[in-house]
Design a protein around this nucleic acid. Structure first.
Lengths: 202, 202
DNA sequence: ATTCTGTTTAACCATTTGGTTAAACTCAGG
DNA sequence: CCTGAGTTTAACCAAATGGTTAAACAGAAT
């Protein structure tokens, strides 16, 4: 990924970092300017207001998250492999940017209307429903036990995403440092896949 | 629970509501004063600063969350019943205060040091380890299949808590209103318990 | 060289925000 | 009734913050 080093790009990179770290309310325009190594007025020159700049960052982040969610579901793998691939993909992906989900969820929670506009032209999530259809097919075939596909979908996401969201609590409760936590997440790829598939035994 | 209607109590009630809704950075002292129906100066009269007031609310919320986490694990039920009881308890409990986990996790994420002082004298979480010990016992007996107790613990928490944290995304992706989502959580009590126990079949 | 356009800077501004202060009010005890 | 301690209020303050402006700068086109 070649991030062209124009001022414009430097700004959104800096904004992304600061907003993800401190949230909309907590982020200061000066922080972003400092992070980008430029004057505060430049922020307003390129993106008119704090809100406009935030909107830009947030939209991109949300799209990124949604893309990740159903990146795997499109493939043509057999069902069980697809589960394994999805789990692996999520955990790998979230290891690289662990703040993404908390950022999205938190801002979305403080301003739920923000999602509305975004989802009108969303070409991002139909694949999920396709995957849920595959679940039903497998159940009919008797390859896996019957259960609500929606619940199964939520379970899969929960098992992958939650440990990253709750890292500060979990790592403290069990007294782990960052390295140990990362190892735990790595081990988790196999563990979660197995957990799901074992549960789905007919 | 009789919330004595002293000014003092009114303030922390209001503060709890506003902080949970907007976070530390997003909350305004004026908002809290308005919510409590009092003058802004009163906040400083009773609790010296915004930070002090926040600390109070946050600590209480964290303790509440931790208490809930291991409320069930203390009992003397057989293992499988304990799992069912725990899942039921979490989902019921979170349905009543769905903003608790997001609040904690978000603030903890922006200021991880905050947890340190809190956990020094924590008499709150040893029960979790006791429960993990019970898992091992069950595995040795062959009553459930073998897996990492830590991962199983994380799975249980993930399955219960995540759907509340990610509600704004999930309900939008699947186009559900609040009522439907609540029903989904209700259905989830049985579904998650079953999902876990089915996975643990030897 | 000069002009013209887009970019960058420093100084400035209005508003918001956390916090203070001194006066006013309440009410129990003398 | 009066005093005095705790409580409440309105007015105020200094700092921080998002945003503006006009001037300076750079570099391509004429």
């Amino acid at each position: 990924m070649q991030t062209t080093n124009t001022t414009e790009q430097q700004i959104i990179d800096a904004a992304k970092k600061i907003f993800m770290q401190k949230g909309l309310a907590g982020a200061r325009m000066q922080d972003i300017a400092d992070e980008a190594g430029i004057n505060k007025a430049m922020l307003h020159y390129y993106y008119r207001s704090k809100d406009k700049l935030f909107e830009m960052v947030f939209t991109e982040a949300l799209e990124q998250l949604l893309k990740r969610i159903n990146a795997i579901f499109t493939g043509d793998m057999p069902f069980k492999e697809k589960v394994a691939a999805a789990v692996d993909h999520y955990i790998t992906s979230l290891s690289a940017s662990p703040h993404l989900p908390i950022f999205i969820i938190n801002e979305l929670n403080q301003n739920p209307e923000r999602i509305v506009e975004r989802f009108v032209h969303a070409a991002e999530f139909p694949d999920i429903k396709k995957f849920m259809q595959e679940m039903l097919t497998e159940m009919e075939k008797g390859a896996i036990r019957k259960m609500s596909p929606l619940q199964l979908m939520m379970n899969t996401l929960s098992l992958c995403v939650f440990p990253f969201i709750a890292k500060p609590i979990i790592s403290n409760v069990f007294g782990m440092n960052d390295e140990q936590y990362k190892a735990l997440m790595e081990e988790r790829k196999k563990s979660v896949t197995e957990f799901i598939l074992m549960s789905l035994r007919p």
